[in-house]
Design a binder for these strands. Structure first.
Length: 656
DNA sequence: CTGTCGTCACTTTTT
DNA sequence: GTGACGACAG
């Protein structure tokens, strides 16, 4: 029985059934990218008799991988075992390879993956050894540079100045501790492939069909890795949209998408041009904006939807007024509005159909306050404040210490987490002492003579800590992982009830590891956790207005979207970092934001904004002026008449 | 070694 | 406006 493709349009069918060697699918926003990818996978199995085990589908998140597996499974009516298909991220693939063959690149079998915070801590400790004059506050920058450096391992491109001494010391420490960072998950398999062609060929022989999602966000290492993985006999099918590449700050390079046609022979390029999401006005506005970019493959999206309402522009005198204005509009939308004469104008929306998107988390503050005041339910996705010191940050180092007490990195993380009883200087001293004695921190704590460094007050709390550790080490042989975590949380005074429905994430996460004592489940559990980001995930069912960054909104859609804080300096964001910011990337981000909207798009800005402890004046974002003026309507602000209204026709002269 | 004060930095974050 | 770091005084 062949797969029913009747729900697809011509371009999608083309993409699903293409038999060419290498295929590039350009899938603009709302064109059914995920569907096409799932259909392609199912089609290969069902209609082309491809063995599931010879297919590899690479997604960018574990969540996407999961969804993908479900969709394919549904399309195949659960007939075939989709577990045979390799669906996962580059990183999980790399990890799988390293678990099997890691010894070939010098890894001991029980290596662990460094978390982001651990990486920063490690760099700080390496930094004080190698470049003592460098302030530790810039450790994050160094982490970024180390990552860049690894990212360019096999490329001619030169990298920003990173002292070799720092790099080699960092690498040496990783090796010593049997740790690898996220980049190593790609880099080491890549090296492994290059040095052991027979391993590479085993992989090549297994995977004949390679499907890659979000190809525009691939980085140099992933690109090279994919090249190694796809042998001459392989068929490479990649999908993405260069206009939605917004992860350059993490090393993603949209150039790889743009040069796909030169990189691979016999490429067939198919563009999905039909947008099923937005009104024509929204789509055209967004496309007019993105057309200002030059690093792209020009293509025009069409929509059979109605014209819809114009893009609404709100302008306020200050950030508080902006928030009030937005909330006032939301109230109208909820209540069902009859202001506009068109049919669309009489819609009313549910809370979960509305999103407020911004460039920077800080922007959300006034909006959540205003929403709270109006009694409108809302959820803020991400941000620092929303996860009060994510319990994960405390529990994981603890678990790691239980598994390996001599893991100084984890042990010092515990010490730092303990109510500031140990500051960095003390820990550094203890670490130095440990190194002098060629032992671990843990051993130092067991030795009687550290009086000079630790006052009685501290020693008291140490004893508590140590006896707690010892107790846990014993108990983990008997109790379940979930019980162990619960006990640790209790011991650390962490408020994290595992069974609480507010934390289903923890509950679900520990679920697969509930068999047998914690001790046996721990290694695998830690591995799973290392590849997962806790991120407060967006709940589409919650009856609440959603507040999040444009980055976080990628891949989502909402009937109503408010893009707020649209001021020069903020969006495009030029405030931070060392080098010049990439205007084209910011514009892509703006485009991603606009194209989240299905029916209504509101843009709002403020003349002044309180940010980083000072009031800043700013002009409206230059991106607003890139929208055709006739597609914009200015929503008058009755309350603050002082706010200058900018007539649509005059906009162009006021910007840039 | 410890406490205090001035300074500097602050994006976005699928892994 | 915050929080972490580093310099300096005690």
């Amino acid at each position: 029985m062949s797969l029913d493709l009747s729900s697809l349009n011509y371009a999608q069918i083309d993409a699903v059934t293409a038999i060419d060697e290498n295929i590039l699918i350009i899938a603009g926003p709302g064109t059914g990218k995920t569907q096409t990818l799932a259909f392609r996978t199912a089609y290969l199995i069902r209609s082309k008799d491809v063995s599931p085990a010879s297919i590899i589908a690479i997604t960018f998140t574990n969540k996407a991988a999961q969804e993908m597996r479900e969709r394919v499974s549904n399309l195949l009516c659960n007939e075939c075992n989709t577990a045979d298909i390799w669906i996962g991220t580059f990183h999980s693939l790399g990890l799988a390879i390293l678990r099997e063959e890691g010894h070939r690149v010098g890894l001991r079998p029980d290596f662990l993956i460094l978390s982001e915070s651990e990486q920063i801590e490690l760099v700080k400790s390496v930094l004080s050894d190698t470049l003592p004059k460098e302030p530790l506050i810039r450790a994050k920058r160094w982490v970024q540079r180390l990552s860049e450096r690894k990212n360019h391992t096999f490329s001619s491109q030169s990298v920003s100045d990173l002292p070799d001494i720092l790099f080699s010391a960092y690498e040496h420490r990783l090796e010593e501790l049997n740790l690898i960072d996220f980049d190593d998950l790609i880099l080491k398999p890549l090296i492994l492939f290059k040095e052991n062609p027979e391993v590479r060929d085993t992989c090549r022989n297994r995977f004949c069909h390679l499907l890659v999602d979000e190809y525009q966000d691939i980085n140099n290492l992933q690109y090279q890795f994919l090249k190694e993985l796809s042998g001459p006999a392989a068929s490479l099918w990649v999908i993405g949209d260069a206009d939605q590449a917004i992860y350059a700050f993490r090393g993603a390079n949209v150039k790889h998408f743009l040069k796909f046609q030169q990189d691979y022979p016999d490429v067939r390029t198919i563009a999905l041009k039909e947008n099923y999401r937005s009104t024509r006005t929204i789509l055209t506005s967004a496309q007019t904006v993105i057309a200002h970019n030059s690093d792209r493959i020009p293509h025009t999206l069409t929509s059979s939807a109605s014209t819809g309402l114009p893009v609404h522009l709100l302008q306020a005198a200050n950030d508080k007024a902006e928030a009030r204005l937005v909330v006032k509009e939301i109230e109208k939308l909820i209540g069902g509005i009859r202001m506009e004469s068109s049919f669309e104008g009489s819609d009313s929306f549910g809370f979960n159909e509305i999103a407020i998107l911004y460039r920077l988390h800080h922007i959300s503050r006034f909006f959540s306050e205003a929403l709270k005041q109006s009694g409108i339910p809302y959820q803020v996705v991400g941000g620092v404040s929303s996860q009060p010191d994510s319990a994960m940050e405390y529990v994981v180092p603890f678990l790691k210490t239980l598994l390996n007490p001599h893991d100084d990195l984890s042990f010092s993380a515990i010490l730092q987490a303990m109510d500031n009883k140990f500051d960095r200087t003390t820990i550094t001293q203890l670490l130095d002492l440990a190194r002098d004695r060629e032992g671990s921190l843990y051993q130092i704590f067991h030795s009687p003579k550290i009086d000079g460094l630790l006052d009685p007050y501290r020693i008291d709390s140490d004893h508590k800590l140590l006896s707690f550790l010892h107790r846990m080490q014993k108990e983990m042989l008997a109790i379940s992982l979930r019980e162990l975590i619960a006990t640790i949380c209790q011991g650390l005074n962490l408020n994290m009830p595992l069974e609480d429905e507010n934390h289903p994430w923890w509950f679900l996460l520990t679920e697969p590891f509930s068999d047998g004592p914690a001790h046996d489940q721990l290694p695998e559990f830690l591995e799973t956790v290392a590849l997962l980001k806790e991120g407060e995930t967006y709940n589409s069912k919650a009856e609440a207005v959603t507040l999040m960054t444009v980055h976080a909104a990628k891949g989502l859609e909402f009937p109503v979207v408010f893009m707020v804080g649209l001021e020069s300096g903020i969006f495009p964001c030029t405030e931070f970092g060392e080098g010049p910011s990439d205007l084209e990337e910011e514009r892509r981000l703006f485009y991603v934001g606009m194209t989240r909207a299905k029916k209504r798009l509101y843009l709002s800005c403020s003349q002044s904004r309180h940010l980083f402890g000072e009031n800043r004046e700013a002009a409206p974002s230059s991106f607003i002026s890139e929208i055709p003026p006739e597609m914009i309507t200015v929503v008058p602000d009755h309350k603050s008449a002082k706010a200058k209204k900018i007539p649509a026709g005059k906009q162009r002269s006021l910007f840039t």
